[in-house]
Design a protein around this nucleic acid. Sequence first.
RNA 1: GGCGAGGUAGCUCAGUUGGUUAGAGCGUAGGAUUCAUAACCCUAAGGUCACGAGUUCAAUUCUCGUCCUCGCUACCA
Length: 697
Amino acid sequence: MKKRHLITAALPYANGPIHIGHLAGCYLPADIYTRFLKATGEEVLFICGTDEHGVAIELKARKENTTPQAVVDKYYEVIRDSFKDFGIDFSHFSRTSRPIHHETAQAFFKKLYDEGRFKEIETEQYFDEEAGQFLADRYIIGTCPKCGHDHAYGDQCEKCGSSLSPDELIKPHSALSGKAPVKRKTKNWFLPMDEMAEAPGFKEYAKRVELWKTNVKGQFNSWIQQGLQPRSMTRDLKWGIPVPVAGAEGKVLYVWFDAPIGYISATREYFEGLGQPEAWKTWWQDPSSSLVHFIGKDNIVFHTIIFPMILNEHGGYNLPDQVPANEFLNLEGDKLSTSRNWAIWLHEYLIDFPDKQDELRYTLTSIAPETKDSDFTWKDYQSRVNSELVAILGNFVNRVMVLTHKFFEGMVPGNKLKPDTAARAAVLDAIRANQDEVAGYQHEMIRSLNDFRFREAQATMMNMARAGNRFLAETEPWKLHKTDAAATAVILDYALQLCAQLALACEPFLPFTKGKLLQQLQWEPDTATRRQWWREQDAVFPLEAGHQLGQPFLLFQNIEDAAMDAQRARLVKPTPVEENTKPEYTPLKPEITYDDFVKLDLRVGQVIAAEKVVGADKLLQLTIDLGFEQRTVVSGIAMHFAPEEIVGGKVTLLANLAPRKLRGIMSQGMILMAENKDGKLLFVAPNGSADNGGTIS
RNA sequence: GGCGAGGUAGCUCAGUUGGUUAGAGCGUAGGAUUCAUAACCCUAAGGUCACGAGUUCAAUUCUCGUCCUCGCUACCA
């Protein structure tokens, strides 16, 4: 065991919020492991932050008509708060747009550059002249040469599944401007990974990979055996960290170069905040520190090959000791998808299930995709909560608390009993047997945690509560109390000590429950007690005779069917990929004459009042000012706009449309709306200061 | 296309360095019980271990092939 443990969790990409798949695959295991190590008294640092660069964020900003900075600012906060709410206990949560990260990443690049580690290679890349930038393969669209699908991407055709290069596409055009891209020469800096794989430091590191999880080892070996190719560490993009080299204007660092370095800059930032600007080096460079990366399976190659290679070439850094990558979590049988909104978002979950963080943590850990993809269903969630958390753990604690209050006024009754009758000897035997059983689980759980088998560890923790329930069934203190109060006292004393151990045991998995349990026990374990239990693996019986317990309350509540039905109803079945990504243009209508057009009386209007139409989901009742008069217009835009956000806005009104009653309200005209491909409505309005009532032609 | 991982009870998952009856939790059925959120506790039923072939005295486990799921894919090997 090394002296200190640096734990990282994959930097979440700041183009959307966090969903249960992220939590189950990466952040929860990392948090459990960190909490476990801390409980044993180890020195631990748990580092994370948002990854805020790259082409996807640039495109999202463009699509939403805002800036990349605004996008990342928004999601940085959402993501940070989600983690906080779920008790993901980072030592520090940073972001890659901070100056300290830019400096760190640039310094890294500069050192490798100055030492001649990169290869400068000139290639031809597709360039969008109108957008003024180079295009990633994914952003070139054209007709698939194999199946004729007219919306194939430059890297792959989603319809027939064939892999493509942009050159193969028929009629290629840019996803940004729609124009045909041209080829331009550009210079980039490549990491000669084939050569670097032969470096002694890397070869030494490769040996330890043999001991890692099969999925990780498999991919690692696959890449090494196939032979590595040089890979560009710079990109022709705008949004990112400028390449700190002369002649590299307009180029940024490849996100996969800069993102892992984010672990380092976040560590630096953390210690600078503590006023110890040099302390980060101990964690990254002292060989007595271990480095563990928690990631999802999509990140294996970067964390097991590219980043270690960069660290090794830079020199002076520790290479990872473990990369326990998980597989993926599905939701109700389908892949999670941010773009298709097939997900359970953490911030939304807490609105519907306030104070039920541990219920989700428990479910996700019990189905964590440790060896293969797994599936989250609301039915399963309900079952885990009701028949495990409520029935086993919550119920055991409640039974013990209620019995103690009933028989001993809520005081720890003490454990002194002589085996002076056969019945009493049997009670003491039962306690001893149960102690042995629980100690077995304790050792097993700690073993599992050390081996990154968190699902198994959590199940073993629950076995302790099961043992508690069995103990009560065997000793039946509610019966015995009528004949032997002294024997009943020792039974409940032991059961309470078991509750205290459960509070210790559930800490990595269920931190909120741990707090509730301690509150009921009116007990706060000191570091030595925790450490003794977790490290030396001795059972501890910390509650002293006469100690006054708190009032019992339920740790968990049953989840009703109705709540699950509501959640399932909320999930929108994802549409097939091609339907969603292919822009569908409505066919043109038959030709009309100018005379047809002039029949329309279009006017500039202004919304001066808006309210929801009672009993209608989609309708807003608007009052439109036309200068010379005010109109009441009922418009089907309530799903897209809140009344208060549109008051004051200019609109285009079709003013001579025959009035029509909608939901009992006479609507005098129609508001013109544009619809984008996501089905979102946008107002069509004059872009200057047009007067209300002005004509439009 | 290539490579990697996976396909084991109704569900979620363990496991097998090849060897008699393949495990757990949940769900289901039966029993027992009433301190406890009709919860707990005990018992039982449930599986040609994706499919086909091969090696072997013996294959769910090793080899090859096929099908399916997921991930990665650097002009793709």
